[in-house]
Amino acid sequence: MTHPADPALLRALAIATEKALLEAEIRLPTDVLAALRRAAAAERNEVARQEFALILENIALAGERQVPICQDTGVPVVYLTLPPDVPFTPDLFAGIREGVRRATTAIPLRPNVVDPLTRENTGDNTGAGMPAVHVVFGDRLTVTVLPKGAGSENASRIGMLLPSQAADIPRFVAETMLIAGGKPCPPVFLGVGIGGTFDGAAALAKEALLLPVDTMDDYEQEICDAVNALGIGPMGLGGETTALAVKVKRRDCHTASLPVAVNVQCWACRRATVEVER
């Protein structure tokens, strides 16, 4: 038998969720902003330089006016970190949903959540399986949000490669961006999930977008270089920077399979973490 969560805890979860969404929608993380500024300073293509200038102006205005960075405020993807002293009960999701409802009105967020077939809008960014909540375990009770817009999410891709195709993974990622072109509003951040199962690789790819983007290991840099060699550039208008960073997460998999997923995120890699006060 499960015991209902403390109402005070649910209220605190709602407050933390709303705060996290407010932060994520209006201000970019420092590592993301630094990556954009570095790329803008290094870009030699004149059109691309102009696009970077517009992106940076957009970010500044959003902060000054306290409005969302992009009109597509995305769908809320939430990572709930639970410490050992907080029981995992379904009631916790109710607190998060309430925070999303409040944020939709207060920020405001565009109501993006619809029934997949009828396309009926729920009006408050909650619904069947929404917001998407992933539970992880740690030392502190925190809410992390990763708003995902449709332009970048629609460009994401998964492939069930053969184990013999491990060397083709950079090509698969670059091909994903070649197909996408300017649709996901490049320059992009790419989360790559390698291993696990069909669904597990996709989850890894999305989790990779939560990692700091101020460093890449040699393998991530190799993939990033392959994507940038495409020359798609900011907003698909050409340039040296198509990907600002590539982050990879791996998991062991079946001996006969090699799942690979690419979760595309536009230049507005929005994410924020808020600790729940209790």
Rank of each mutant, 00 (worst) to 15 (best):
L109C: 09
A180H: 11
R38A: 09
E277P: 03
D85N: 05
M1D: 15
K247V: 10
L178K: 13
C224P: 14
V75E: 09
R102D: 13
M130G: 09
L28S: 11
G127T: 05
R251D: 02
L211N: 01
L9N: 00
C253Q: 10
A20G: 02
I223M: 15
A24V: 03
I107T: 07
T122C: 11
A174F: 08
A48M: 13
F198L: 05
V78N: 12
L209A: 00
G233R: 07
N45T: 11
G129F: 03
T30M: 10
L36Y: 10
A42I: 07
I223Q: 12
E46R: 14
L161M: 08
G236I: 12
T105Q: 12
R37M: 12
K148H: 01
L56N: 07
T215K: 15
F189V: 03
R140P: 00
V192I: 15
R110G: 04
L22C: 14
V100K: 14
L211F: 02
L54M: 13
R27Y: 09
R278T: 15
T142V: 08
M160G: 02
A132V: 10
F88S: 15
H3M: 13
P84N: 09
R97E: 14
E153D: 11
A42W: 09
A268D: 13
V264D: 01
P170E: 15
N58E: 14
I15W: 07
K148N: 00
A202D: 01
A34H: 06
G200K: 06
K247H: 10
L92P: 01
